[in-house]
């Protein structure tokens, strides 16, 4: 146990240079972007005089090195700076928007796992059957349909034509009020508040964007499950297990699936981090106040602090996620230990 704690400590220590690198690179890269925030924020009618006033107000008249040390100094105190376009501390913005994205992404991942893993397993077990073909069709559709297209299609059918879905207006229809904030996840917060109506409303708003994203994330997970499962099932130990007369369920799930899970979990981690940044198109279609649209808007406006804050937040998430995945490896497959490192 002490060995594991030390190993986790080691892993955490390894992330420090990564984060430092991200800080430097995000600072340099945002400055290298074309466009001058002073000009942008001074507005279209601004003249030289007003642009210079804005430049001084934003602290952009100082040399780059000074700006960097000021930024690092603020960071050390937990201050990510202030977004110029929203006028709020970046930390506040991220705290408001990250849960929205996480809630959507996690719901989508749960949904796609619930569908994709059984589908992948069945497709591997019954190769060439209709399940296998269904799996193939779903995967192909999921990969080839861009998310904004699926999103608009779903809105068209389920909101516009059928009227089953609520108006695609973000996380909660305006007739409800957001639950008292605890986690920032409306589903959880409304349960904590014991407000089942708001919970149901949140679920309804979540349905379409979740399905949209799930369709997209389903593909790699189902494919990976099927391939890993096929490989596991053709392994010697499965033959041995079968020869030993173990039950079908025990063979499939106890030995087959457990061994196949490793690549699936790896894929899941990659899909998660990819989707969190890439679901901006879904956010736009469903007016979802997520982190993707925040980052894009900040980038367009050359809003340095906001872009850097976003990159940093993503880096942290990614590092944490990788750590969790590494730890889960050891749970899934006891042969993988930390002692080897």
């Amino acid at each position: 146990m002490a060995g594991r704690t030390r190993a986790i400590g080691m892993r955490l220590a390894q992330t420090v240079p990564v984060i430092l690198g991200v800080i430097v690179i995000s600072f340099v890269l945002t400055r290298a972007l074309p466009g001058d925030p002073a000009v942008y924020f001074a507005g279209a009618m601004a003249d030289e005089q007003s642009i210079q006033q804005v430049r001084e107000a934003l602290g952009l008249d100082k040399p780059l090195v000074t700006q960097f040390f000021l930024y690092v100094g603020d960071l050390a105190q937990g201050d990510l700076g202030r977004s110029i376009s929203t006028g709020q501390p970046v930390l506040t913005d991220l705290a408001a928007r990250l849960p929205a994205s996480l809630e959507l992404t996690l719901s989508a991942l749960v949904l796609s796992c619930v569908i994709a893993i059984p589908l992948g397993v069945l497709a591997a077990v019954r190769q060439g059957s209709w399940v296998d073909h269904l799996c193939r069709v779903l995967v192909t559709a999921g990969v080839s349909l861009p998310t904004f297209f699926t999103g608009i299609l779903l809105v068209y059918i389920f909101y516009y034509l059928l009227g089953w879905a609520p108006s695609p207006l973000g996380r909660l229809d305006f007739i409800y009020f957001e639950p008292p904030r605890v986690t920032g996840f409306y589903l959880i917060d409304s349960l904590i508040a014991g407000d089942l109506e708001t919970f149901a409303a949140t679920l309804r708003q979540l349905a379409l964007p979740t399905i949209t994203l799930a369709l997209f994330t389903l593909a790699p997970i189902a494919r990976m499950t099927r391939a890993a499962m096929l490989q596991a099932l053709s392994a010697d130990y499965i033959r041995t297990a079968r020869a030993a007369g173990l039950s079908r369920g025990k063979v499939l799930f106890g030995y087959g699936l457990r061994n196949a899970l490793l690549p699936v979990v790896t894929t899941l981690g990659m899909v998660f981090s990819f989707v969190l940044g890439a679901n901006v198109l879904v956010e736009k279609v469903f007016a979802w106040p997520g982190i993707g649209s925040y980052a894009v808007e900040a980038l367009v406006a050359s809003d340095y602090a906001a872009v850097q804050g976003f990159v940093l937040a993503m880096a942290f998430l990614f590092v944490t996620l990788n750590l969790i995945i590494d730890l889960s490896y050891a749970l899934i497959d006891p042969r993988i230990g930390f002692d080897t490192k």
Partner: peptide, 20 residues
């Protein structure tokens, strides 16, 4: 109530349905 709806198709569906 001013709602921000960035996507044009979504806004079109909303106005046609009369929800805004």
């Amino acid at each position: 109530i001013m709602r921000e709806v960035p996507n044009n198709s979504t806004r079109r569906a909303l106005i046609e349905r009369g929800d805004v």
